[in-house]
């Protein structure tokens, strides 16, 4: 079974978000980038399934410029076998999906996994676009993934519950907790990752369909109104009469 795991390079979850002075781009200065936390579920689960099957490969794919390579190496250290980097800034979900679909098709991958969404752009779009471009089923968002031969059993989250879905490979799934416990690299993994193959390819396709005109931060709160703990019940009156939310 050939697994393709798509990872995104995102600001660490503790990052305070700021923008360039013209508000057109995210300000990367001083920001630590990590593997998108949702993608870590996809990566670890692919490695677990490969190990359980005793054969197969896990390929990591990232669409990004050369500065994403430390995180690609980290994914190799966690246990992926090889990696592909599409040498381009990820312009939008459609652009990224075209790159993934082209590589998935060329490499005839059986299972294409990625996180539910990236924590920076929060598109939650790439999985469906890739599935549609390849004409294969998508299961999104998946909370559980098991394989038996070429058949996968997944739990798909819907509002208020879940669906148990069975699909045959090839398919696309976008992953989220509690699918697995994401692994961290060990020393041996870090050593072997240095020599694992990382192929760089140039982008294909027709470009992006959306662009960001301007970023903005949420409006600041006016400041907190404190209510003494002894008269906590007064809060409820304020919520009704002043804030008018109950």
């Amino acid at each position: 079974m050939k697994f393709l795991v798509c990872i995104s390079n995102v600001p660490d979850t503790t990052t305070k978000i700021t923008f360039t002075p013209d508000n057109k781009e995210f300000n990367k200065a001083g920001v630590q980038f990590v593997i998108n936390p949702w993608d870590e579920y996809a990566l670890t689960r692919a490695i677990e399934l490969k190990e359980a099957q005793g054969s197969g490969t896990v390929t990591v794919l990232n669409v990004g410029e050369a500065d994403t390579e430390p995180n690609i190496r980290k994914a190799l250290a966690i246990g992926a076998d090889d990696a592909i980097r599409v040498n381009a800034a990820p312009k939008d979900a459609y652009f990224v999906a075209q790159q993934i679909a082209a590589i998935a098709k060329e490499g005839a991958y059986d299972v294409i996994l990625m996180g539910k969404e990236s924590i920076d752009y929060n598109g939650f779009q790439v999985h469906g676009m890739v599935g549609e471009m390849l004409g294969i089923p998508t299961v999104a968002p998946a909370m559980k993934l098991d394989m038996s031969g070429t058949t996968a059993t997944l739990e798909r989250e819907i509002e208020g519950g879940k669906e148990i879905v069975e699909v045959a490979a090839p398919f696309v799934a976008s992953c989220q907790q509690p699918m697995c416990e994401p692994r961290i690299p060990n020393m041996r993994g870090i050593m072997t990752a240095r020599t694992k193959p990382l192929k760089v390819v140039e982008p294909v396709g027709e470009g992006a369909r959306t662009s960001v005109a301007e970023y903005a931060l949420p409006p600041k709160k006016q400041g907190v109104k404190l209510i003494p703990a002894e008269s906590a019940g007064d809060l409820i009156k304020l919520l009704r009469n002043e804030a008018k939310v109950i």
């Binding site: 600001p11 978000i17 923008f19 995210f26 924590i119 920076d120 752009y121 929060n122 959306t210 662009s211 960001v212 005109a213 301007e214 970023y215 903005a216 931060l217 949420p218």
Partner: peptide
Amino acid sequence: AFSGKAFADV
């Protein structure tokens, strides 16, 4: 965008 930390005009 940015998981509720910002907005983007697209």
